[in-house]
Amino acid sequence: MFHLNGEEFRLKVGLAEMLKGGVIMDVTNVEQAKIAEAAGAVAVMALERVPSDIRKEGGVARMANIKVIEDIMKTVSIPVMAKARIGHFTEARILEALDVDYIDESEVLTPADEENHIDKIVFKTPFVCGARNLGEALRRIGEGAAMIRTKGEAGSGNVVEAVRHMRAIVRDMKRLTTVGKEELYHEAKQLQAPLELVEWVAEHGALPVPNFSAGGIATPADAALVMQLGAQAVFVGSGIFKSSDPQARAVAIVQAAKNFDDPAKLLEASRSLGDAMPGLDVSKLPESELLSTRGW
């Protein structure tokens, strides 16, 4: 497709490749960033509030305070990501000027544009975007996203939505590899996705960019579960710093991402962790409180 083989896009995807098998942790201050790095996080997401607090406090959630992001960038040697609102390309330009390593155009923040996502191709800084299904993932890649993550339901401490989204994406990719070439036009129409990307997935059985998981991961077992379902790395938001012993939980989730298919090691990682963050029954949440339905 137009931009997939360009040098800039290869560099964007290249950094995502380096994060595979790792854990990207939400942090809101320098102390948390240090804990994340010391535990073995591959990157941190610099935020003002973790998703469960955004959910609790309500109001408009925007790009984080620059000082918070800057202090975190000065503190750790691993990549630092930050979030911009859906469609808010000026917030994204500011984050690019700040020199963050990755921008998350995120449904966790209050959307700034109800129709358009950011045109990500024109940025030098790479973007990650959330997706609930294959069509959404391919629309974001078409706009220039170099990494996809499941949306899950951020701040819920409930992995069910992340599982639903990962299963949907993987199932649809497999299905595309089995249909006839002449059917791909119709598939593209159904998926509301660019034909070239639908053809790419049909040929390779995978996304043209790394496919990570986020939204509701709270335990080492949750991290291992989404990895087994096909995630190549995990984002953990509220799950670490809203638990009773963040340090131990951070280490345990890093180990779980590496040992996702080794039950004995997962058992070891799951011992002596203290309490997980409190969870929400996503099916009981009113539609207006769902974060995953933001964006299209």
Binding site: G40, A41, V254
Partner: peptide
């Protein structure tokens, strides 16, 4: 391989 050297060091120790 490439990756995060700090993460790999931790995992080598773990």
């Amino acid at each position: 391989p490439g990756g995060e050297s700090t993460t790999m060091l931790k995992l080598l120790h773990y």
